[in-house]
Design a protein around this nucleic acid. Structure first.
Lengths: 217, 217
DNA sequence: GTCTATATCGGGATAGAC
DNA sequence: GTCTATCCCGATATAGAC
């Protein structure tokens, strides 16, 4: 019974590490990664700057952990959706809804991690790979939705990029966009026949995610 | 006949300043503002770092100029559209098309300026104000389009944010999204009756922008 | 595992010669 | 208006006491 540490998106975290990540995520989203100093993070957490290094080996390590935590569940969900038989448009819709929920509920802001340009540097290759994987999974869902006749024909990868870009609107300053509006906007932008939307939403809501919620891996 | 300097978006620039801005924009978009050093910029331009300070008073000044140049024309266009009588949906559509053109043709990347988090700092208040103005103008167009029955009901400011967020997809690494796809996605996401889209596109294309191209102000 | 103190480095900006 | 040399500061990271 080692009571320390929760498991979140498959990563074990001590409560202190969790507080640091939560704080760092907020600051990164607000001011950008490079513009946020480790002193800023420490001050917001309420400790001295060197204390961070007992939990993370470097500043980059904090961002790395943040990306894994922010993208872990969305990738996992997208993978489950692509593997599953069924209507791709509904699966995409449900994936969107789950991402929005994840975004709103999680302290680890997926948003403005997607567009953190510092991730382009060489040593973040594995983090970028995760993002690319998500991109491809979503593109795959969209492509299948097109072949099934539910979604408009367009380059699936472009469509995936456009959908992902929308998440940023939820991070913008002041009042953010509501999740429902984001989903509606995205689905209306993608769907071939708008009259089918009601069915797609219904099917999406009916999808069973129970097997995922047991947190495998 | 003082032949030096071109006028661009209402800002006079020497050729050297123009090269610096072009280079800085690329680097900022690629690596982020804070992560790009003035030495990086100078090296890419092919001069020594202090040479930059003959053209700009600070690094922040470079970003500031970039924002003004990147947003100047989009704001100008949006203002012209909101002032003009006529179908708002078509005006929005034309504005989108012009922004995409501006984005593709201009070295001053509007993209990833919109989401540069460093602009949140206090001393960039006037630059942020420009962004807010654009946001409100687009929201105004969308609101009018809704009242005219062309666009789906939803919070106009949220809609504006979602549309603006799409521009980021054009900046993402590797192959970017084509402008046409972006416009289609946005308009499909906004429009009430998709059958009206053809008309809206036609009207948008027919809009006369001649009075603007004389570069007033 | 947190603290204080500090090493080390890189970035923004200025001085002054040419 | 570009160069070299340099100042100064802030940022990451480490050392070592408690």
């Amino acid at each position: 019974m080692v009571a320390e540490g929760t498991i979140r998106d498959g990563v074990r975290l001590t409560p202190s590490a969790e507080r640091i990540l939560r704080t760092a995520a907020r600051l990164f989203a607000l001011n950008g990664y490079s513009a946020t100093s480790t002193r800023d993070i420490a001050a917001a957490v309420g400790v001295q700057q060197p204390a961070l290094y007992k939990h993370f080996s470097s500043k980059d390590d904090i961002l790395s952990a943040l990306v894994k935590l922010g993208l872990g569940r969305p990738v996992e969900l997208a993978e489950a959706m692509t593997r599953r038989p069924g209507r791709a448009a509904a699966q995409l819709c449900r994936w969107l809804a789950e991402c929005v929920r994840h975004l709103q509920g999680s302290p680890y802001v997926l948003v403005s991690i997607i567009t953190t340009p510092e991730l382009g540097q060489e040593h973040f290759a594995s983090e970028r790979a995760l993002l690319d994987r998500l991109d491809r999974l979503v593109a795959e869902l969209i492509g299948r939705g097109q072949r099934e006749g539910d979604l408009r024909p367009m380059d699936p990868l472009s469509a995936s990029r456009l959908v992902m870009a929308l998440f940023d609107a939820m991070a913008m300053p002041e009042i953010a966009v509501r999740g429902e509006e984001l989903i509606d906007f995205a689905m209306n932008g993608l769907v071939e026949d708008r009259n089918a939307l009601e069915d797609i939403y219904r099917e999406a809501a009916a999808l069973d995610l129970a097997s995922l919620d047991t947190q495998p891996g």
